[in-house]
């Protein structure tokens, strides 16, 4: 990863699922992730890291890959939650992980269903420190 990431990092969250409320809880005053200059943005062109979480079907996978193509270099992906790390909880044949691993580089895997907010901060900070 590039050295730009050390000073500022823009995150973009996609998908719908239970992990979303615990990821956005990080913005609150108790955890306050903006101490580390980490911001949540809404447009793919501004984003450095894509946070993939939640449930996806065939249509959803196509949209995630489109969003990843619109992001500018350097870029990466964090995978959050069991639904992304293994398979969808309610569907036996979901192919999201195979699609992701074949096309994009995944920087960090965060296990948990849903993971605690501290675990998410830990993952992002590890990316910042390793770059």
């Amino acid at each position: 990863m590039s050295a730009i990431f050390k000073s500022n990092l823009n995150l973009l969250v996609t998908g719908y699922g239970c992990c979303k409320q615990d990821i956005f809880a990080v913005q609150g005053a108790l955890y306050d992730i903006q101490r580390f200059c980490i911001n949540f943005v809404n447009t793919p062109e501004d984003a450095d890291l894509l946070v993939v979480q939640g449930f996806y079907n065939k249509e959803g996978i196509i949209r995630v890959l489109n969003i990843y193509e619109r992001m500018s270099n350097p870029r990466g992906v964090i995978a959050v939650g069991t639904c992304v790390l293994n398979k969808n909880l309610f569907s036996k044949n979901s192919k999201l992980l195979a699609w992701l691993r074949s096309t994009v580089k995944i920087y960090m895997y965060v296990p948990g269903c849903p993971p605690r907010p501290e675990a998410f901060i830990y993952a992002v900070l590890r990316i910042m420190n390793e770059s």
Partner: peptide, 12 residues
């Protein structure tokens, strides 16, 4: 133990 994040899937 809650601080869990790895860069390889097999480390988990």
């Amino acid at each position: 133990r809650y601080q869990l994040a790895e860069d390889r899937r097999k480390n988990l």
